Simulated scan of single mutants.
Amino acid sequence: MSRKSAKSHHPLEQDSLEHTPEDSSSPAQAADESTARKASDKTRDDKTRDKEGEDENNDAPGDVSSHDAHADLIEKLVAAHNQINELKEDYIRAKAEMENIRRRSQNEIISARKYAIEGFAQELLSVVDSLDQATRVEMDQPNAEAAINMKQNMKQNMKQGLALTLKQFDQVMEKFGVIAVAAETGVKFNPEVHQAISVIASDAVAPEHIVNVIQKGFSLKDRLLRPAMVVIAKSPEK
């Protein structure tokens, strides 16, 4: 009885009874588990690095392609910029040329208006010369006898000279399209080219026909410059 009580209360014997064989091997197992975990972690790290390397390798072609696209875009932008500059230069040159054409056209129009009758005036000079010569012949008489002889023939000579001058003047006018309106005795009155200043009864001329021409009318090509001033006939009163 006393031995059993002593055995049960001995601390060392109690500790040795409480420890099983499995408890004695736990440090070794913990070491193995730690080693296994490290190996697993290492393997996982290696796989992660391999995957990252693969991702980097996979990303490399994309980076090259992006660089090429960027370089191509820059090249296109430079080409577009050069083309814009060329178009600007062409526009400036075209604008300057149009301005020069406009100025030349304006100068030509001004000159044409200013010297439109230059040819007409040159042709009229011959008429002026004829009139001037006629004036000189009348004024430059050497003596009284010559003046008397000139006076006797003055009417006839003057009429002939004026007729020749008028004919010359008409030729110049016709050359530039200035034509006398048809207005003679017996011509039917035309309100488009004739202007009646008087109406008289006449047996010799039909009603609404021209009896007499007071002033000639003229037209420039197809445009009326002035109407002919005429006297027209009407039926005589009975």
Rank of each mutant, 00 (worst) to 15 (best):
S126H: 10
T20Q: 08
S219F: 10
S40H: 08
E138G: 11
A196T: 07
E89M: 01
N85A: 07
E174H: 13
L162I: 12
D45S: 05
E97I: 04
Q14G: 12
E192Y: 15
I92D: 08
R104P: 03
N153T: 13
V231Q: 08
A233G: 02
L12N: 06
E208G: 08
P11N: 02
R44E: 06
T35E: 02
D59G: 04
F189P: 00
E22R: 09
F189K: 01
V127R: 00
P27W: 06
A6G: 09
I117T: 15
D45G: 01
M139G: 08
D90N: 09
T43N: 06
H9D: 14
A80I: 05
K221Q: 11
E208M: 11
S40L: 11
T135D: 06
M154N: 13
E97S: 08
V213K: 05
S130I: 07
L131E: 00
V231M: 07
D23C: 07
R136I: 02
A233S: 05
V213A: 00
Q215C: 04
L124K: 02
S202N: 01
Q160H: 12
D50L: 06
S24I: 14
G186Q: 00
D15P: 10
V128H: 03
A39H: 06
A233I: 03
N58A: 12
A31E: 03
I84E: 03
H10G: 04
S235N: 12
G217L: 00
S40K: 13
K216R: 15
A6N: 07
V137R: 10
M173I: 08
N107G: 03
S111N: 04
